[in-house]
């Protein structure tokens, strides 16, 4: 359950970005979470509720954009979705696969009102 620690990071970022307008409420928080991170969206949602409670973020909508795990074969250049975390090129069977997406873990945007 390190999602609580991750959410502490999210709320640090929120307070930094909203410091200039303390009178406003945060109505929406958009996170981007890659498929190959150890962050579980449901656990992030639960942690979000805990942190938002009694703050200017309470009641805000949490949007989690999930990014698929994509990799590129360094041997034949084929790029595609990685299934079940097996980094094996479906075209040439090479194991030399570079991750192109799926490791993202960031706060994308906020909406304040």
């Amino acid at each position: 359950m390190h999602e609580m620690a991750l959410m502490a990071g999210v709320f640090e970022i929120i307070s930094r970005y909203t410091a200039d307008f303390p009178e406003k409420r945060v109505t929406k928080v958009t996170l981007v979470v890659g498929e190959m991170t150890n962050a579980v969206p449901e656990a992030l949602e639960a942690a979000f509720e805990v942190y938002a409670n009694s703050t200017n973020v309470e009641g805000a909508e949490l949007v989690i954009k999930e990014i698929p795990l994509l990799a590129r074969c360094t041997e034949c250049g084929r790029e595609g979705r990685i299934e079940k975390h097996m980094f094996v090129c479906p075209a040439c069977s090479s194991l030399s696969m570079e991750i192109k997406s799926g490791r993202e873990l960031y706060v994308d945007s906020l909406e304040v009102d």
């Binding site: 991750l6 990071g9 999210v10 640090e12 970022i13 970005y17 909203t18 406003k24 996170l31 873990l105 960031y106 706060v107 994308d108 945007s109 906020l110 909406e111 304040v112 009102d113």
Partner: peptide, 12 residues
């Protein structure tokens, strides 16, 4: 008002 953040959750 939308604020573009684009900051890693683990950046700290």
């Amino acid at each position: 008002m939308e604020i573009n953040v684009n900051t890693g959750i683990l950046s700290a």
